[in-house]
């Protein structure tokens, strides 16, 4: 029968565990503006691509519940043994050092849990890595410290532009600090966009949280990723590999619009960026273009 300090301790531990779990799950329902990080956010951002939705479901419905249960289970066991087998409650220690059945159980059950995790894990992995037939292919090149976007000529493009972060002094009302850029990259919704990635100098990484996309941009290598955006909007990303002093200052902005609006923008952009015929610095690098992922 628990009394006094032990009772208080037990209650405090339970309350703490309940609080933690509540915190973990509560924020998942917080209001989110798609494409940008939610202030005070607790979970993955709202996703706007099929891969993103699948990733979010995998984390929220498979991984997070499993790891929460495991952590709480271990916490409960620890609290229980401390309460039941402290030297006052149990002055004579047992001599039991083996229990084959228990050892089998605590080997097999984790294996089963891992199998349960592996099934959705591998399914999502295949969806992420295998690029479906794409109607738009873009080449994105990381530089110190900005992204260069190239739209191929045979898809209505034939121009390239640099996407530079807006300095604090250039921010317009409603612009997000550290995320807003001068030239947004426009893409059509509901189409598979293939993004080919490389770098002109050091390793960078292209990541857009609301797409569930993150891929390194490596000099001498052409990497590939893809996304299919399901709704119009403005989606922000950042550089996800340390690349020098302005690593935190090279954001990505993608504006998804309808196909007609995209084609209109292409025509405009061709004019606007005509002077950038050969993207700056491209000749600096001899890109070995073969051998992207299979």
């Amino acid at each position: 029968m628990l009394t006094g300090k032990r009772l208080t301790f037990r209650r405090a531990a339970i309350a703490f565990a309940a609080f933690l779990s509540a915190l973990l799950f509560a924020g998942l329902a917080a209001a989110q503006v798609e494409g940008q990080p939610t202030p005070g956010g607790l979970g993955l951002p709202a996703m706007v691509t099929p891969v993103g939705h699948e990733a979010q479901a995998f984390y929220n419905l498979v991984l997070l519940p499993i790891i929460t249960l495991i952590a709480l289970f271990v916490l409960f066991l620890l609290i229980y043994v401390c309460w039941r087998f402290n030297e006052t409650s149990n002055p004579v220690p047992s001599k039991v050092t083996h229990n084959t059945g228990l050892e089998i159980v605590w080997t097999l059950i984790p294996v089963l849990i891992l199998v349960v995790i592996a099934i959705p894990s591998f399914r999502l992995l295949t969806h992420q890595v295998e690029v479906p037939p794409a109607s738009v292919t873009l080449k994105v090149t990381g530089n110190q410290w900005y992204w260069n976007w190239k739209y191929p000529e045979d898809q209505g493009g034939g121009f390239a532009f640099d996407q530079m972060m807006k300095a604090d002094s250039d921010l317009a009302p409603g612009d997000l600090r550290l995320l807003a850029v001068d030239n947004e990259a426009v893409v059509p919704i509901d189409e598979v966009i293939r993004v080919q990635l490389t770098s002109n100098d050091v390793i960078h990484a292209f990541g857009v949280p609301s797409f569930g996309v993150r891929q390194d941009a490596i000099p001498g290598r052409l990497n590939e990723t893809w996304f299919k955006i399901e709704k119009e909007g403005v989606y922000y990303g950042q550089c996800y590999f340390i690349c020098g002093k302005d690593h935190a200052y090279m954001p990505i902005v993608i504006r998804a619009v309808s196909r007609p609006a995209y084609e209109a923008w292409l025509a405009e952009a061709k004019q606007k960026f005509a002077g950038n015929d050969t993207p700056r610095n491209e000749t600096k690098l001899q890109v070995a273009a073969g051998d992207a992922q299979r």
């Binding site: 993955l44 990733a55 894990s121 992420q128 949280p209 569930g212 996800y240």
Partner: peptide, 9 residues
């Protein structure tokens, strides 16, 4: 790896 896509770096 599929989850890490959202967590790497």
């Amino acid at each position: 790896a599929s989850a890490d896509r959202s967590f790497h770096e």
